[in-house]
Computed example of a mutant assay.
Amino acid sequence: MTLEQIRVFITVAQLGSIAAAAETLHKTQSALSIALKRLQDELNIELFHRQQYRLSLTVAGAKLLRHCEYLVKQQNHVLDIAKHLANGIESKIDVIYETVCHDEAIFSAISKAHQRFPLTEFYLSSENNLRSIKRLIDGEGDIAISPWMDQFNELADFETLPFSRFKIIIAAHKKQFPKNEPLPKSVTELEYLPLLMPQSLIFQLDLERLLGFVSPLQIRTNDLWAQKAMLMNGGGWGCIPSHLIEHELKTGELLELKLEEISYDAYVETRIIKLLNHSLGIAGKEMWQTLASKAANFNLNSE
C-alpha cells in the first residue's frame, strides 16, 4: 500500500468515477484502475460498488476513506513541518518568566508569534526566586523575563533589555495592629511578628542586610503568592511587590508600613534576557522584537 494508491482511492471516491479522477490527477484511467486493484487486493476488501456509470463506496470502503483522508492530511502536515524547519523556523521555543513579572505583554507576544508561526510549539513556564535565570544558564530556556541585578553579569554573558519595573513595599495585615493607634515606624517595633521571607534564592541576596534587621522570628515561603497568603492571614510582615497586593492596599485590608530604617522607595527593574551566544530562530527573534517594543515603551515612559 502506497500513499499514491491512497490518493487515487480518495480522489475516485470524491468524484465518483475513474475517468474524472484520471483527469484531475493527470493520469491515465488504466493507471488508476491498476492502482485501485492493487490496493483492494492488498487489503482484501472491495472498496467500490459499480452502479451504472458511477462508483459508490462499499460499507468497508466508506469506513476506510475517513482513515485514508486523515493519513493524507498527516502527510501534508509532515511536509509543512519540514518546510517550516528548512526555512530556519524553530520547532520549539521555551519562554520562562518569574511570577513577579506577570505581564499581559508576555502572553500577547506569545500569541502574536504563534499566529505567525503556528507550527512552532511555544512552552511557557513560570518560576520563583530567580530560577528563570538559572534555567537559562543551564540551557533550559530561550528567553527569560526576570528581575535584574547587574551582579548577574558575573554569572554568564547575557543580552538584556529593560522590560518594566515594580515597587517593593513593606506590608502587614491590619489585624496585626490595634485600631486607632499609629502604625510601627521602626523594625524594632515588629520584633514580635514573624518576618516573611523567601525560603531560598538561587543567587544569594542578603535580604536581612538590605532590611538592616535580623528577625528572630521567620516564616519562609517558596513563592510570592504563598507570601501574600500569609500576609492575608496575619501571619507576619515582609517585603512584597506592591502590584501583587494593589487591591488589598486600596481596601485597607493590608497596610503599607513606612519604616525609618528604609528612607527610600525600592524599585526593581525587570528585563528580557537571553544568553549572548544563544541564537534565536526566526520565530524567537520575532517574539524578542515584540517584547522589545514593550521595553521601548517602558524606556520612553521612564524618561
Rank of each mutant, 00 (worst) to 15 (best):
Cys68Ile: 02
Ser56Gly: 02
Arg66Gly: 04
Glu69Lys: 05
Gln52Ile: 10
Leu57Ala: 01
Ser56Asn: 12
Leu57Tyr: 02
Leu65Cys: 05
Cys68Ala: 15
Ser56Leu: 11
Gln51Phe: 02
Ala62Phe: 09
Leu85Thr: 05
Val78Trp: 10
Arg66Thr: 15
Leu55Asn: 00
Gln52Asp: 13
Gln74Cys: 07
Cys68Asn: 06
Ile81Lys: 09
Tyr53His: 14
Ala86Phe: 05
Leu57Asp: 02
Lys73Glu: 11
Leu79Cys: 08
Leu85Phe: 13
Leu57Val: 00
Leu85Asn: 07
Gly61Trp: 00
Ala62Asn: 09
Leu79Tyr: 13
Arg66Met: 03
Val59Asp: 08
Leu57Pro: 01
Arg66Gln: 12
Gln51His: 05
Leu79Lys: 12
Gln75Tyr: 10
Gly61Ser: 03
Ala82Asn: 10
Glu69Asn: 01
Gln74Val: 10
Leu71Ile: 11
Arg54Leu: 11
Gln75Phe: 06
Ala60Ser: 15
Leu85Cys: 02
Ala86Ser: 12
Val59His: 12
Ala82Lys: 14
His67Ile: 01
Val78Cys: 13
Arg50Gly: 03
Cys68Tyr: 06
Ala60Gln: 14
Lys73Tyr: 03
Ala60Thr: 08
Thr58Ser: 06
Asn87Tyr: 13
His77Leu: 08
Ala86Tyr: 13
Leu57Arg: 00
Arg50Gln: 09
Leu71Trp: 00
Gln75Pro: 00
Ala60Trp: 06
Arg50Phe: 00
Leu65Tyr: 04
Leu57Thr: 00
Gln52Val: 03
Tyr70Glu: 15
Ile81Cys: 12
Ser56Trp: 05
Cys68Trp: 01
Tyr53Ala: 13
Ile81Arg: 09
Glu69Phe: 01
Tyr53Gln: 15
Lys73Asp: 09
His84Val: 07
Thr58His: 05
Asp80Lys: 14
Gln74Gly: 04
Cys68Gln: 06
Leu71Met: 07
Gly61Asp: 03
Leu55Glu: 02
Arg54Tyr: 03
Lys63Pro: 00
Thr58Arg: 06
Arg66Cys: 03
Val78Phe: 13
Ala62Ser: 12
Gln75Gly: 00
Lys73Gly: 04
Lys63Asp: 13
Leu64Met: 12
Ala82Tyr: 09
Leu55Val: 00
Asn87Met: 12
Lys73His: 08
Ala82Asp: 15
Asn76Glu: 14
Tyr53Trp: 03
Leu85Val: 13
His67Ser: 13
Lys73Met: 08
Lys73Gln: 14
